[in-house]
Amino acid sequence: MKKRYLALIVLLSTFLFGSKADSSIWGTDLLTHILEYDKEGSLHMGYWFTLIQSTYVKPMLLFVLIVIPLAFIVHYLLIGPKRFSHEGRSIMMFPLFKRINHGIAAISFIIIVPTGIIMIFGSTFGGGAFVRFCKEAHAISAPLFFLSVIPMLLTWFSRMLLSPKDDLRWLKIVGGYLSKEKKPVPAGMFNMGQKIYFWIVTLGGLVMIATSVALYFVDFEIIRPVLEYYSLSQIDFLRISALTHNIIGIVIVAMFMVHIYMSVFAIEGAYKSMVDGKMHEEEVKILHSTYYKELQEKGEV
């Protein structure tokens, strides 16, 4: 009996301490990595990470945060918002499930985006408890985003597929946002701009989630076989993850700002369909003309 008990303790302690002993960063891999350090054929990821992180990431985000709002101000002053008649019939565009889904994503983004920006400009905020709190909030709201991104991808997938005829024409006239005229814009249920945003946020978002898990846990063994297959060390994988996370992150910040400007300022009152899911007939007729024709054919309008 005593022997069995002892064996159990030994077994448990090997799991507890044995697993920790061979860390994927500070364990035996550290040695191979030091031996490879600066040698020819190594990825030099330490060098690239240091260079890009120290000199490019902050200015890139600063550029986005200054230039995009400036562009909005110019657009608002020169062209102004599109106003559509809010009288008459409205068309149901987003059923409840999609609205809840979008709502969850919206809440997560409202936390993730500013906290991410605060972390990149951490030194401006003096570091310490506040930035640390933002770091935890950033991490906690990630599962919330994950919760919404999968159904979003599935429910909107077919509507978000590119339809070259409309989309190229939409791109050519930039969705008609550069003129004050109310001419029908070639677009289905979603226009090219929305499609670009959708694919960046869903596919890019999945990459963001994958890299965030790596950056959060740092020292793990699960993907070791995959890394070994590509002869990549854990630390280089983390460096690549951090760079990818920050660069895609900056792109998403830019797209998110455009998304908000579009729904709040560029098309007056468009954000209201977040809650009721409806769009007024004139708005659909002009901004989503192909979709309107589709509805006409079905006899729904």
Partner: peptide
């Protein structure tokens, strides 16, 4: 380094050639 400022993001670990920073 100043531990009151540090937020534990581990970027220093990614930059370090030796895995010196510990968390």
């Amino acid at each position: 380094h100043d531990k009151d400022k540090c937020i534990g993001c581990a970027y220093c670990l990614y930059a370090c050639p030796f895995g010196a920073p510990q968390f």
